[in-house]
Design a protein around this nucleic acid. Structure first.
Lengths: 321, 321
DNA sequence: GTCAATCTTTTGTCCTAGACAAATTGTAAA
DNA sequence: TTTACAATTTGTCTAGGACAAAAGATTGAC
């Protein structure tokens, strides 16, 4: 009965957990000889946990720009070494080490308190552009190393999200321009990046409208069409591939009215030098402020020029909202 | 070259837009003869827009419980008729008809204002148990009816969720008992029900800890094990089937420590007379208050009497279910 | 030396058609 | 009415092969 009753997870579970497509997993197995899942009674792939972990490691490095062909021949130890080196290059001596003990102790109240304190001390801008990303990396690393479980990760996400939400709540810029529509596309359920963007936009005086996660493309376009939305902003986490993000952005760009700008940010987009026509890629959080300023500059002259013409009425109507 | 240069979208775009998997799309084509995408130069499927629309229609009816086999043989007109009929069956005279015009006008600020006003007028309890559910039904019907799009639905959800979150934020019951862990299981991404429950629990003096959506079962159990959690509360939306919910609850019950209670609520659970051993099913929001009171009563005596006889405590625990 | 154009390798996604289990529905017996 | 079993429906998995888009390497012009 238990002759090598090795357990494992299905290919769809691995796709969900690692962000690597089913096709990709199969083709890697064929080409590189890894992963090597065993099979269940009906010959379907069963990935042992350590291989899933291995795959996650590879994905992590790919997200940093490495290419799979080389990574797949390397042993786990070497992958860890590469990650360590990357971390060293970035030379981010993480000072936020207070968070892990609190998380492990499940001390939510204290966690909330500490976050609030840091927010008050550093100000919103620095909190969102530095503190939270630093914490995210810390948590990500800790999870990868097995220091914390999914429970602690959920917990952290929930607490930070709440902090950001209440922050945003106090920043409603009724009627101010530009009007920004925020959301994520299908299969992208990470809200944290979106909330961080929303906080920064709101802090810079934009009027934000968040649709939450996973709005279908046609509906985003429909929303932009019927409303006073100036900018559509999308967030892509590291779980999303650059290819997919690119495809979605190109398609959405075609669906959107020409006067609506399309901004995109998130881990999936950093590092590529490439630009997508008609899409503004914001690689770092710090870019949001300047981008907004630039939008305002462009559209101020636009408004001025229009003053002479009959479009003034429309401008006023839109501006009032 | 341009003999019928009909354009269309790729199979992955259709997957993203409709929520139907690639495999499913291909197997439908094979089995039922629909959809019938034409092919591009390299023989890949290109779906014309009207077929994508047709597919979305089918998906909508499937979400209402219809099965694909029948729907795929029906013409578009008939699908529309079915949607209309479903809407007619649900025909409830709702009094909250102020919300639809606001939504259609995308007047978010006014929507927020009206909600806040109703909350102040009716009080938290009535707001959560009556107003919000009534609005939910209204929105659901309007969506099925085609009166509003997914955009408006997201918008509504987002605004109400924000309202609830800021409400909960002001109700932190540090350290009070019971400690309730709230979350949803895998494949259940609707947060609204969870937030409504959290608001009511917090209003009744419970200390709540929300993990957001889709926590794996083992991690829920792990969380309950290492902490002071008294009750694990799960929410199942109407999109979830009763069978799946039941299976998940039974499995989770086995994973949880015996002294941790398991509560479950949501549309997926109402109407069935069935009970699940070891699980407290809360069919209506109004049940939350009494359930909490009962927990407190039991555990007060429990604490007192436990000193006398160990066995009594266990008897109480078991007898309650 | 720098930049652009071209060739080569890498890599992800799509293709076909068959198979099977999980979920649902239909039917018969208790 | 419920319970048990059989029939259907339905989604997801399998196999290699194929090809274009992206990335890396090489060449040529200035």
């Amino acid at each position: 009965m238990n002759t090598q009753k090795r357990s494992g997870v299905s290919i769809s579970a691995v796709e969900r957990d690692t962000g690597l497509g089913k096709d990709t997993l199969r083709v890697w197995e064929r080409r590189y000889g890894f992963p090597t899942p065993h099979r269940d009674a009906i010959d379907e792939r069963l990935y042992p946990p350590e291989q899933v972990e291995h795959l996650r490691l590879i994905k992590r490095l790919m997200d940093q720009g490495k290419r799979p062909g080389a990574l797949l021949r390397l042993p786990v130890a070497e992958l860890h070494a590469q990650l360590a080196q990357l971390r060293a290059e970035k030379n981010q001596t993480e000072t936020e080490d207070w968070v892990l003990p609190l998380l492990k102790r499940h001390d939510v109240d204290q966690l909330r308190h500490e976050l609030a304190q840091r927010l008050a001390r550093d100000g919103l801008d620095r909190f969102v552009t530095e503190t939270v990303p630093a914490l995210n990396r810390l948590i990500g690393d800790a999870w990868m190393n097995g220091d914390i479980g999914i429970f602690e990760e959920h917990l952290y996400t929930e607490v930070v999200q709440n902090q950001l939400r209440s922050l945003i709540h106090g920043l409603a810029n009724r009627g101010k321009r530009p009007h920004v529509l925020l959301t994520t596309v299908k299969d992208e359920e990470h809200l944290l990046g979106l909330l961080m963007a929303e906080a920064l936009l709101a802090a810079n005086g934009a009027w934000c409208l968040s649709l939450g996660a996973q709005t279908p493309l046609v509906d985003i376009a429909g929303a932009a069409r019927g409303t006073t939305i100036d900018i559509v902003a999308l967030s892509f986490s590291g779980a999303y591939t650059w290819r997919k993000a690119r495809a979605a952005l190109i398609e959405l760009r075609q669906l959107l009215p020409e006067h609506t700008e399309l901004w995109a940010g998130g881990e999936a987009l950093v590092g590529r030098g490439k630009t997508i026509p008609g899409v503004r890629t914001l690689e770092r959080h710090e870019d949001i402020g300047p981008a907004l300023a630039q939008w305002r500059a462009t559209h101020e002259t636009h408004f001025v020029k229009m003053d002479a013409t009959k479009q003034l009425g429309e401008t006023l109507r839109r501006g009032k909202k």
